[in-house]
């Protein structure tokens, strides 16, 4: 069956693409990298910088905007801590791609645990297979 072979080849190709170690996504990260003057780096999954992106620094408790500006070409931004503010929310936005992080004046940003990328890719394929299955059952029932 030519079409089965074609589809198998296509699935294998997609799988091999998704397993490339260099594969990285357009998810945005915002992470603090310095302490005295707070230095923050904004980047996409795969470490490409979010250069010349708009940012806002807010007081995490009162949501008051403290600083606004644009990241440099390498995705860095820096600001001087404001007295009495311990938690800052940093929002970086590059043409609709938005990353957000809450950082503390003492350094470090909270990281959330999640599945590794390849597991998430397989999860997606699983959902697609399931959907295809449901659609096939539905169309088969209709035919009867």
């Amino acid at each position: 069956m030519r079409s089965t072979r074609l589809i198998t080849i296509a699935i294998l190709l997609i799988l091999s693409i998704s397993l490339m170690p260099a594969a990285s996504a357009h998810r945005c990260y915002v992470e603090q990298v310095g302490a005295d003057e707070i230095v923050v780096k904004a980047f996409y999954e795969g470490d490409s910088p979010m250069g010349l992106a708009e940012y806002q620094i807010l007081n995490a408790d009162s949501e008051e905007v403290l600083y606004e500006g644009e990241t440099d070409e390498d995705g860095f931004l820096s600001f001087t801590p404001v007295e009495d503010v311990t938690q800052y929310t940093v929002v970086v936005d590059q043409f609709g791609h938005m990353g957000e992080a809450t950082i503390s004046a003492t350094g470090g940003s909270a990281e959330t645990a999640e599945l590794p990328l390849f597991m998430r890719i397989f999860t997606g394929f699983g959902y697609l297979l399931g959907l295809a299955g449901i659609a096939m059952i539905y169309t088969a029932k209709k035919k009867q």
């Binding site: 996504a25 357009h26 910088p49």
Partner: peptide, 8 residues
């Protein structure tokens, strides 16, 4: 993705 500074 492809890096096209300053974006990706």
């Amino acid at each position: 993705h492809i890096n096209v500074p300053p974006t990706s």
